[in-house]
Nucleic acid binder design. Structure first.
Lengths: 257, 257
DNA sequence: GCAAAAGTGTTTTACTTACACCCATGA
DNA sequence: TCATGGGTGTAAGTAAAACACTTTTGC
């Protein structure tokens, strides 16, 4: 049980170097094979799952802390990350009892006392390409796994509500903002992009209208290549025009800084 | 200088009974006479202005803390309050130097040290009827005043950016959600409501299209009365149908609980 | 050659915007 | 009676939704 020491050290680290009362929680949506998934962690010595989270260092920007924590959990740096709500109900601890959940770790009383109690948590959602992620548990958890969006179990804290709201916000955002950069390979086909949208929205879309709308954003460059090897007619390859893409995001972005 | 003692006591109160590292800031929009205004506070012994704020008690829900703080600053209980973003840049303290600003208050070194340093701040915006508000400064400020939205000076902290984002969010929200409850008297006319919208959006709207759109929401009951006393044709009076209004809010609300 | 996916435009519909006339009221 | 604001409906324009045929490719 070497990890006990590590956890106790981490808790002291929290107390010393991080903002108290503030935490970050992540709804990391993974896209793969026409399935929308969420990355969950299993709490040590229990069968209970929760969202990955993080904390903010003194002198660290909130957003920077979010990117840092996310990197730790997924191995990914440049990804689509969006603040969506801040959760501050006292009762969000409903499904989490410090004694019950932490007790099994056999920590010292000091460590238990110093473990963050009631936090206000800033919720971010992220979109990543499933395959690029290396799920990595943190010290409090011993498993990190993708879950199908419609098979999420009852989670610790208020994390079920967080997922629901994150998905709702993401879907809304999709209606007025482009998405896909860092989520698809550099070169991709229009059907690839459409499948991404359909997966997130949970509904099918008309091919022709979809293409019209996306091309209307004027953020894609069509390449002269086609994707070969498929069993059918070879579709064109597209690439995001980074400048135009960034500009489109700015023009309509809800949350800045 | 009796207030010095009070402030020192308040700072201790903060340290003891409130979450550290978390604060709340309010962009309180006031509507009056076709003008959109924001409530600002002037920091004691300076000519610098800032947004009203609050802190969260241990065991108090974030939203409850927001309503409580707002009540303290405006005297109003039931009002339209909406979380819009959480600000966590370290640099948001650009225009605030603890030494400079607090120094003039002649506080003890202990109090200065205990005064909250770097916070993550949850931003809420509120809509209130100008005339119903009793602006009340807090202990750190000695003036509480309405400012015209387009005459806001350079504020302390990152508060100018907060106002900008709050207004942007409010305007966006207006396009898919009804607004007006608690902002207009119980009975009001269609031109009253239109003026409210025009004030917030900063643009004029077509009378007929506006009426069509609003009535299309199906949240108003037209009364048999008309508003008399005006210099012209007596307009009909309307009343919000609270049930339908709440339902309309829920159906499209971005942020819940 | 056939099944399955991809490329491409037009029609229809719904929604949004623009616009005009008559009526009531107080000065 | 006149100036001003309020009540009401329709036509035009624009954006979204529905829809069909042809081409390519591997089997």
């Amino acid at each position: 049980m070497e990890y006990k020491k590590q956890i106790e050290r981490l808790i002291i680290d929290f107390k010393t170097n991080y903002l108290s009362s503030v935490s970050i929680d992540f709804v990391i949506f993974g896209f793969h094979d026409g399935q929308l998934k969420v990355l969950l962690l299993r709490w040590k010595e229990t069968d209970k799952w929760c969202l990955p989270g993080g904390r903010v260092r003194h002198n660290e920007n909130l957003e920077a802390a979010a990117y840092r924590s996310l990197q730790e959990r997924t191995g990914l740096g440049e990804i689509f990350l969006q603040q969506f709500h801040t959760f501050g109900d006292v009762m969000r601890y409903t499904h989490f009892s410090k004694e019950e959940t932490m007790g099994k770790l056999g920590l010292s009383q000091d460590a238990l006392n110093d473990f963050p109690g009631r936090d206000v948590s800033v919720g971010y959602y992220a979109l990543v390409e499933f395959a690029r992620v290396t799920p990595t548990p943190d010290l409090f958890t011993d498993e990190c796994q993708w879950w199908d969006i419609d098979q999420i179990p009852l989670l610790l804290f208020d994390h079920n509500a967080m997922i629901t709201l994150a998905l709702k916000t993401l879907r809304r955002q999709l209606s007025y903002q482009p998405i896909g950069y860092n989520l698809l390979p550099e070169k991709f086909t229009m059907p690839d992009l459409q499948q991404l949208y359909e997966t997130i929205l949970g509904q099918t879309l008309d091919r022709r209208n979809f293409q019209k709308r996306i091309l209307g954003y004027d953020i894609l460059d069509r390449l002269d290549e086609r994707k070969t090897g498929g069993a059918h007619k070879a579709p064109y390859l597209y690439r995001f025009n980074k400048e135009k893409y960034e500009k489109a995001l700015e023009d309509e972005v809800l949350f800045v800084g």
